[in-house]
Computed example of a mutant assay.
Amino acid sequence: MHASVKWVEGDTFLGRSASGHNVVFDAGKDSAAPSPMEMVLMSVGCCSSVDVVSILQKARQKVAGVEVKLSAERAESAPRVFTKINLHFVVTGEAVSDNHVHRAVQLSAEKYCSVALMLDKTVEITHSFEVVETVGK
C-alpha cells in the first residue's frame, strides 16, 4: 500500500491514495477539513461499520441503516494519543435481532476490523449498540 501527503498551505494538506483518491486534512484551529486524528477516529468507525453491515447482510437481517457514533478521549499532553474510543452502533431495520447485532459488533472488534485491532494495542476501545425498529415508518 502506498500514499502521499502534500502540503497545500497553512495547516492544510492533501492526501492521495494509490487508488487515486484525494482527502483534505487540516490541522489548524479554524480548520476547513478534518484533522489527522479525526480521520483516524472516523477510519475506525468506517472499518468496523463495513464489517457490521456485511455480517448482518450475510445473516439475512433486514437492515435499513447503520450509523456508528464515535467518542474518544485523548492524552492531556503530547503526544496527544487516543486513550479511549467508544463505538456506539445504531442499527435500523425490520425485525433485526439484537443477538445478530451483538455478534456482528463482537466479530468486528475481535477479528475483522484491522484499524480497531491495530489501535487496540494502546487504546481502550469499547463497543455498544442499539437496534431501532423501522416497521411502519
Rank of each mutant, 00 (worst) to 15 (best):
H2Q: 13
V5M: 09
K6A: 13
V8D: 13
D11N: 11
F13G: 02
S19N: 15
G20Q: 09
V23K: 06
F25E: 01
F25S: 10
A27L: 06
G28A: 10
K29I: 14
K29D: 15
A33I: 02
S35K: 15
M37F: 12
E38S: 03
E38Y: 00
E38W: 05
M39E: 03
M39Q: 08
G45S: 01
C46F: 15
S48L: 10
S48D: 10
S49M: 10
V50G: 09
D51W: 05
V53P: 04
V53L: 09
L56I: 04
Q57W: 09
K58A: 06
A59I: 05
K62C: 07
A64G: 14
V66M: 01
V66C: 11
E67D: 10
V68T: 11
K69L: 11
K69T: 09
K69G: 04
K69H: 11
L70N: 07
S71P: 07
S71G: 14
A72E: 08
A72T: 05
R74A: 04
A75L: 10
E76D: 14
S77F: 08
P79H: 03
R80H: 13
F82G: 03
I85E: 02
N86G: 01
V91E: 07
G93R: 00
G93A: 01
A95K: 13
S97W: 01
V101K: 03
H102L: 14
A104C: 06
V105N: 01
L107G: 09
E110Y: 09
K111G: 04
Y112G: 05
Y112P: 00
M118A: 11
L119G: 01
D120T: 02
D120S: 13
K121G: 06
V123S: 06
E124Q: 14
I125G: 00
T126I: 03
T126C: 02
S128L: 05
T134I: 00
G136T: 11
K137S: 15
